[in-house]
Design a protein around this nucleic acid. Structure first.
Length: 657
DNA sequence: GTGTGTTCGCTTTTT
DNA sequence: GCGAACACAC
């Protein structure tokens, strides 16, 4: 396509944004104003002008968004094979660190620790400095460390940043936590950004190498960047300032994770020559839906003032529905969906059910299953949270990276192989004192008589087994999937599952998920040019996985009701949306209600994101009672419901009561 | 060291 | 109302 053809269907502001390719550019793009089109067109124009595709770096918020964007670019520039670098911040950092991390004292094949293992590591560290769990819980420690890390606070200076006793304890744990991670040659999620930041600060040559890779940089969902991400970008574009950022301050919903709206609000002070383009024509929602959204978000004080204009007339009003409890809420919505599919020629994929917390979908799930309506729960981590899956993942991690102690400790006695807690504790103690790897410490402990010959031998036998598996995964004459299946067989893991669970149904689902894991390894092998165990593990850790499992499941995904949290719905749109559980304590969430005005404002933005996902039809629902910890509790309708409705609608609602 | 029964505690949101 | 962590018996 010619440049003229590429921009023909854009409106004037969109065209302005897409064609401004040199220098800093801020695109303030409201919900549904076509920002993805602007970014992809912009990339296509650059490529058309002769810029090599891989010299444009595009950072997106999720891997899913990255894949979609790559697809759109390919459509725009035709058949030509292009490989633009589209990636999330975290995936980008993994790429950089896999090349450069050695100068920071790690080995290249570092593993990324998962959330569960992170918690056990935190627990272990707290124990080692004798902190009671009642004083500081592992989860709380991790939250504090994460906040420090995303602000670039080093262990050495953490003590100065401690605001109270708990944080002071956390500052002591910080050092230990980092040391242990390093000894395991593991990094956690925040480290990916933090280490890259350190790398750039301490090793100008490494920074130079990365800077030289890109002539143009674009960031999507810029309102959700945190301090480290901002620094990373600043460093990368320093020589040319060809930086285009796109975002919407009204959709900033990740402050709890360190995102700072100030980056988008003060873009011009960092880049004084920056041009600003506003996109305010909404092509997604009907005018009714947009009115609701605009009214709601106008209650926020901290924002750029803007009002989105709609381009679509409503056919249906926005509906507000009250149900007696959460089961009825699910039943009635299930009924309506099945009616619309059967009688109104609707597809399951037209519908999305959005909610605030991950416990909410349960009721909907069983309702939809009962009615045999295809559905999929998106963004749910649950598959990789299952015990079997985490065990097998740990096996693969310890096979890939012998120093990954978190993985080792998880599976060393699963299935049981006569290695008890006392044995492990003795070895660990020695390993920490000597600073030696686990199995070396084992041999030393046997030699010194600290460990009985019998106990020691079971550990060393396991080491031998690990070596065999490692060799098996390293051979090129069988696929990763085959190796994994052989591993499962040699562990007798399936009979272990059959033995462990009484309920045949439980055994069945667990065996199935093991099959699914093996299938997903096969999928990965097929998809990727150069499949390696380590990069499979990276994909899983970074949430960069395609829908795993069989082709059957994929078909289902394409035409199914989508169930997802509002957070994971960001950037998506659906013809018919149900925004459920509009209750005080849920949306706004209890924690925010107890918090500051800013916390409530973020919840309001979250509601705004939910509302603006809907293209044609929006239904807001709440239940008068909702079960919590098994007991039904009375609820109060969300304040946002009142804010969304016009004064007249609110009066009518009161009269109807 | 392994297998069991019981209590406790917990529920934001996720790259 | 479920799963993990603990206590206790073999």
């Amino acid at each position: 396509m010619t440049p003229r053809e590429l921009t023909a269907s854009l409106n004037p502001s969109q065209r302005d944004a897409a064609t401004t390719v040199e220098g800093p550019l801020l695109v303030l793009a409201g919900a549904g104003t076509g920002k993805t089109r602007v970014i992809t067109t912009r990339m296509a124009l650059l490529i058309n002008r002769g810029t090599a595709a891989d010299r444009i770096l595009s950072v997106t918020f999720t891997n899913k968004a990255a894949k979609e964007m790559a697809e759109r670019i390919r459509e725009l520039i035709g058949r030509r094979k292009v490989k633009p670098l589209i990636s999330t911040f975290h995936s980008l950092c993994v790429k950089i660190l896999r090349d450069e991390i050695e100068v920071l004292g790690y080995r290249k094949n570092f593993t990324i620790i998962d959330r569960g293992d992170q918690e056990s590591l935190a627990r272990e560290v707290l124990r080692s400095i004798r902190v009671q769990e009642s004083t500081l819980k592992p989860g709380d420690l991790l939250a504090i460390l994460s906040r420090w890390k995303t602000n670039g606070v080093q262990p050495e200076s953490a003590g100065d940043h401690a605001l109270d006793d708990r944080e002071f304890l956390a500052s002591m744990a910080y050092r230990k936590y980092c040391d242990r991670l390093r000894a395991r040659n593991s990094v956690d999620f925040d480290d990916l950004l933090l280490l890259t930041d350190q790398l750039f600060a301490k090793h100008p040559d490494a920074l130079k190498r990365q800077q030289d890779k890109f002539d143009y940089v674009q960031i999507d969902e810029y309102q959700d960047t945190n301090q480290l991400q901002f620094r990373l970008i600043q460093a990368l574009v320093r020589s040319h300032n060809n930086l285009c950022v796109v975002g919407d301050d009204d959709q900033s919903i990740y402050a709890w994770r360190g995102a700072e709206v100030k980056h988008i609000l003060s873009f011009q002070s960092h880049f004084p020559t920056a041009k600003i383009v506003r996109l305010e024509d909404n092509y997604r929602c009907t005018d009714e839906i947009l009115n609701v959204a605009n009214r709601l978000v106008s209650f926020n004080r901290e924002r750029h003032h803007k009002v989105l204009r709609s381009t679509k007339k409503a056919v249906e009003p926005v509906r507000y529905e009250k149900f007696s409890d959460e089961v009825t809420e699910a039943e009635r919505i299930g009924l309506e969906i099945s009616y619309m599919i059967a009688k109104k020629n609707r597809q399951p994929s037209d519908f999305a059910i959005l909610f605030r917390t991950n416990e909410q979908p349960r009721a909907f799930e069983s309702e939809l299953r009962r009615r045999q309506i295809p559905y999929v729960i998106l963004g749910s981590q649950s598959f990789f949270d299952r015990k079997e899956i985490r065990d097998l993942m740990a096996y693969m991690r310890i096979i890939s990276q012998p120093r990954d102690e978190s993985a080792l400790l998880r599976i060393i006695n699963t299935p049981a192989r006569s290695i008890g807690t006392t044995t492990i504790e003795k070895i660990m103690k020695r390993s920490i004192i000597e600073g030696s790897p686990f199995f070396e410490a084992t041999r030393n402990a046997i030699a010194s008589g600290e460990l009985s010959e019998r106990a020691g031998q079971s550990v060393l036998r396991f080491e031998e087994q690990l070596k065999t598996w490692r060799a098996m995964f390293a051979t090129t004459n069988q696929s990763l999937g085959q190796s994994l299946r052989k591993l499962i067989e040699s562990l007798k893991y399936k009979s272990e599952v059959e033995r462990s669970y009484k309920e045949p149904a439980q055994v069945q689902t667990r065996l199935e998920s093991i099959e699914q894991l093996a299938d997903s390894v096969d999928d990965y092998t097929r998809r990727v040019a150069n499949p390696r165990l380590q990069s499979f593990l990276d994909e899983i850790a970074l949430n960069d996985r395609d829908e795993f499992g069989t082709d059957k499941k994929k078909e289902l995904d394409q035409n199914a009701v989508k169930l997802l949290t509002i957070h994971s719905a960001k950037g998506l749109e659906f013809p018919r949306v149900y925004l459920v559980g509009m209750e005080e304590g849920l949306l706004p969430h209890k924690r925010s209600v107890e918090g500051t005005r800013q916390d409530i404002e973020e919840e309001r933005r979250l509601a705004y994101v939910g509302v603006t996902r809907a293209q044609e039809s929006l239904t807001l629902t709440f239940a008068e009672t909702r079960r919590k910890w098994g007991k039904p509790r009375k609820t109060v309708p969300s304040r946002f419901l009142f804010e969304m409705r016009s004064d007249k609608q609110n009066e009518e609602a009161v009269e109807a009561e």
